Amino acid sequence: MGRGYRAQSFLAGWTRAVQIARRCIGVPDYDTYLCHLREHHPDRVPMSYPEFFVERQNARYKGGGGRCC
């Protein structure tokens, strides 16, 4: 396997690790949202980043799950 394959593999792994870390600390991934919307819901108008951020924060913290606050 060549150097290009290893670099590509590393970049894919790094990108995934960053996505996971962002989810863990509560930073939503707007680019992933836009990509999903384009692929699966092309008729919908995407939220702006501020709208998306608020929606994700509300889903995380006000979802009524097992949290006490």
Rank of each mutant, 00 (worst) to 15 (best):
R3I: 15
R3F: 06
R3L: 14
R3P: 00
G4P: 00
Y5L: 14
Y5M: 15
R6V: 01
R6C: 04
R6I: 00
R6T: 00
A7Q: 09
A7N: 08
A7D: 06
Q8M: 13
S9D: 07
S9K: 06
S9T: 08
F10S: 09
F10K: 10
A12C: 04
G13V: 00
G13P: 01
W14F: 11
T15Q: 12
T15V: 13
R16K: 13
R16W: 11
V18H: 11
V18S: 06
Q19H: 12
Q19R: 15
I20H: 11
I20W: 09
I20Y: 13
A21K: 07
A21T: 10
A21R: 07
R22D: 03
R22T: 00
R23W: 03
R23E: 09
C24W: 05
C24N: 07
C24L: 11
I25S: 03
G26T: 00
G26S: 03
G26V: 00
V27L: 06
V27P: 00
D29G: 07
D29S: 10
D29R: 08
D29W: 08
Y30D: 00
D31R: 08
D31C: 05
T32N: 09
L34Y: 01
C35L: 15
C35H: 11
C35D: 13
H36Y: 15
H36S: 13
L37N: 04
R38Y: 09
R38G: 12
E39L: 13
H40Y: 07
H41Y: 12
H41C: 10
P42D: 12
D43L: 12
D43V: 02
D43P: 07
D43E: 15
R44T: 15
R44N: 10
R44E: 15
V45G: 09
P46V: 14
P46W: 08
P46E: 15
M47R: 11
M47E: 15
M47I: 00
S48G: 05
S48M: 01
S48L: 02
S48D: 07
S48Q: 04
P50V: 08
P50I: 09
P50L: 14
P50G: 08
F52P: 02
F53W: 09
F53P: 02
F53H: 12
V54G: 01
V54L: 07
E55D: 05
E55W: 02
E55Y: 04
E55M: 04
R56H: 03
R56L: 00
N58W: 03
N58M: 05
N58I: 03
A59N: 10
R60I: 01
R60W: 02
R60S: 06
K62C: 10
K62H: 07
G63N: 14
G64F: 01
G65W: 05
C68P: 02
C68N: 10
C69E: 05
C69S: 06
